[in-house]
Amino acid sequence: MSEHGQPHIAPLKTYLNVFAALMALTVLTVGVAYFDLGAMNILVAVTIACIKAYIVILYFMHVKYSARIIWLTAAAGFIWFVLMFALTLADYATRGWLPFPEAW
């Protein structure tokens, strides 16, 4: 909380700018999907989605103006998700990389 008693009230313009950015990124994500970027397609899609989520969290969800512990909690949700995703996919993606020892 920045001031005592009342939390930070963002100006109307901030919300409209965030809204415009979200719209532009939506157009971008649809447009880019029609270009063949190979394996990059999914990476671009996820990156744009992450940027959109980030500005929603920062401005619409007021994390930018919130206490450190709110930052920490939001980041924890993200980090644990990335851990779950990375470890699970690392397992599935690498299955069959090594030959199964026959003597066992």
């Binding site: 649809v30 029609y34 397609n41 899609a45 996820v46 744009i48 989605a49 959109k52 989520a53 929603v56």
Partner: peptide, 21 residues
Amino acid sequence: WHFVDIVWIFLFPLVYLVWRH
């Protein structure tokens, strides 16, 4: 509500926009 919005922000490209080129 914003969280629900974020879920859709990921759902849309990952579920709808697969191999559209």
